[in-house]
Design a protein around this nucleic acid. Structure first.
Lengths: 221, 221
DNA sequence: TAAGTCATTACGGGAAACCGTAAAATACAT
DNA sequence: ATGTATTTTACGGTTTCCCGTAATGACTTA
């Protein structure tokens, strides 16, 4: 079993639950941090000391406070860590159950497990740790469909970007300009209209306002 | 100090933290539930048994699952309990830090304390319990301004309604019709335009889409 | 190479949103 | 009661959005 584990979660009360799970698995060498930057530093230092952590269990959202942080979210932390140190296993433990988020974390950042905080969260976390130790991948049941290709709703990053720009108050004309500036194509007004129209149909939205509201509720932006 | 307490929170890991706080206060008679309906039933039964609970600590959001619930959120639970049983002290312990939410809970439902889950959550919860026991009211620092009248941004229920209807996909014309149907005045297209325009300025929004996005982020709708 | 499919772009008409101005209705003071 | 301020409503002009059609270009397949 893992012998050296680090937990990153700004809610002290949650870490306590995770600790008890680790205890049940006879993992005693556990470090707790409440800031992503601390996690990053401790993990880096442990590598230099030739005593690297084997597993990171981290939350996604960290409430900002007076301390300025380089890594402001679990996602940023994970991205940095997995790039520099692919050997470190990472399990994300979060209330977030949006498939889009999970997809990105698994496919882009190669995390080893994703557990939703919930009634069965700690039970699932237990399983996730065991599976991960055996080089497997664990996803909570409610997000497993995130990876199955059939659940491909055909909304890609471009679509998300459009809606995000819309929600930031840009007109379709301004979106066109922005895409040109950022060298993103397609960027004609007509295509932008057409894409947004497709999205409206897909999400059964009456108009652009409705679309933004729906997509915001779904947590896609 | 309180002698009989009940905790309602669907995340088992969080309840553990709360338990340790209660333990530090030498409160040992503690009941835990993970569903609002269970909380309601246990509290009601305890009254019948002449051994009522003195304090409820509850979360706001409960993830829906297979079990059909009469009370689906902490807010509904609180509303029902405080109405039938004003003596029961209630502390809400939630990640939610939207002032609007807190305002409603305090003013309308008369809760005794509101603590935000966060780094200092458990410390604040400790204080909240003590204060509440002395018949005081406790609010986490970040939401204290919720009650100060100066934070009155002059947005009333009518404004919120307009934005909510907008976010539901209604056009201004459809909003006019809806207001007429519901016998809400003013309900002319012109006034609706004007109000929304005022709101756009107030929230520094470029257009209606932007307005809805901002207000959604603020948690007002 | 030719035909066919699909994404991208262009354009035009009608609907809705946006904006200013002004008239009508209402509330409120002396 | 009368004048003043505020709210509500009405209206016209401009911009943006919404929607259909069609032309262009890229790519696949025969």
């Amino acid at each position: 079993m893992f012998s050296k584990v680090i937990i990153s979660d700004d809610l002290g009360s949650i870490s306590q639950g995770v600790l008890s799970v680790l205890g049940n698995l006879s993992i005693t060498n556990v470090t707790q941090v409440q800031y992503c930057d601390d996690a990053y530093l401790k993990i880096s230092k442990a590598i230099l000391d030739q005593e690297p952590f084997e597993l990171l269990i981290t939350d996604l959202s960290f409430i900002a406070d007076h301390r300025d942080q380089k890594y402001k979210s679990g996602e940023e932390l994970v991205a940095a860590l997995k790039q520099q140190n692919p050997d470190l296993k990472i399990i994300v433990y979060s209330v977030e159950d949006r498939l889009q988020k999970v997809r990105v974390l698994v496919n882009k950042h190669n995390i080893d497990g994703y557990v939703c905080k919930g009634r069965r969260g700690l039970i699932e976390l237990d399983q996730a740790i065991v599976t991960t130790y055996q080089n497997g991948q664990y996803l909570s049941p409610q997000v497993q469909q995130a990876l199955s290709p059939k659940s491909n709703l055909e909304i890609d990053d471009y679509d998300i970007l459009l809606i995000k720009l819309l929600s930031n108050g840009l007109s379709q004309e301004q979106i066109r300009e922005q895409l040109k500036i950022d060298n993103i194509s397609p960027n004609s007004l007509s295509t932008i209209e057409k894409k947004l129209n497709k999205l409206r149909i897909q999400f059964k939205a009456n108009n652009a306002i409705h679309l933004v509201a729906i997509v915001k509720d779904l947590g896609l932006i």
